[in-house]
Design a protein around this nucleic acid. Structure first.
Length: 229
DNA sequence: GCGACAG
DNA sequence: ATCTTGTCGC
């Protein structure tokens, strides 16, 4: 694969434009026995990133194991180009997994992106895996605030009204989360999947546990490599 | 020119 | 994203 650290934003834009045609947004009909959660952590002003993918049983969501890796990254954070900062490290964590999950939930957007190439779609196309994006804030699009009741949701559309994802009130009294297909799944399917991953918190368990893991890894509480839960 | 802007 | 103290509401 190409070295993202040497790319310029214009070059990254071209890569996204080439990859957008490879994203498949179709119904996912497979069975899910294992689900994964991916996230990154880092110290501000440092080029070292701590990436991790957590494996959990589905639908029980019991953690199975953690794949943690550290990597140097110099590509800057630029809204719309998050994948060029995080995907390389996540690929390392992915390859280190003893078994691959049936679906991977990535912290960030999927097709709810100006060029339909958010990090979840980018990772999905690169690996050929089913991915879903779950973000805490909007990057691109228009939406109506969903109702206050848990489970209330509204469509996230682009300027032409095309649906890119869903704004979901995952829990009562919390800000909504943004769910969108990454690859090999559609909008209704990605929403249904994330709804099944909500337990006691605002964020779905896969990404919430991944976030906890990479933070513990960065702070030295968890070791690099793969560890069973 | 101005506002928006994943992690 | 990370840092950081107190504060507010269920």
């Amino acid at each position: 694969m190409k070295d993202y650290n040497t790319l310029t934003v214009p070059e990254a834009t071209l890569l996204q434009q080439e990859m957008r045609n490879k994203v498949i947004t179709a119904p996912f009909n497979g069975k899910i026995a294992l689900i994964g959660g991916a996230d990154i952590s880092f110290n501000k002003f440092s080029t070292t990133v701590y990436a991790g993918i957590v494996l959990l049983r589905f639908p029980s969501l019991e953690p199975v194991g953690y794949s943690l890796v550290r990597k140097e990254v110099t590509f800057p954070y630029v809204p719309g180009f998050l994948a060029f900062r995080e995907v390389p490290a996540l690929l390392d964590a992915w390859q280190q997994l003893p078994q691959k999950p049936d679906v991977l939930v990535v912290d960030g957007h999927g097709i709810a992106h100006p060029r339909r190439m958010g990090i979840a779609s980018h990772f999905g196309v690169q690996t050929g895996q089913v991915t879903v994006g779950s973000a805490k804030k909007k990057l691109y699009g228009i939406y109506e605030e969903p109702g206050e009741k848990q489970g209330a949701h509204t469509p996230l559309v682009d300027r032409q009204g095309v649906v890119m994802g869903t704004v979901l009130r995952s829990k009562q009294k919390v800000k909504p989360i943004f769910v969108s297909p990454g690859h090999l799944i559609d909008v209704p399917g990605s929403l249904a999947l994330i709804e099944q991953c909500i337990r006691k918190y605002r964020l779905p368990e896969p990404t919430r546990l991944a976030h906890n893991a990479v933070n513990q890894f960065r702070l030295g509480t968890l070791p690099e490599g793969y560890s069973p839960a």
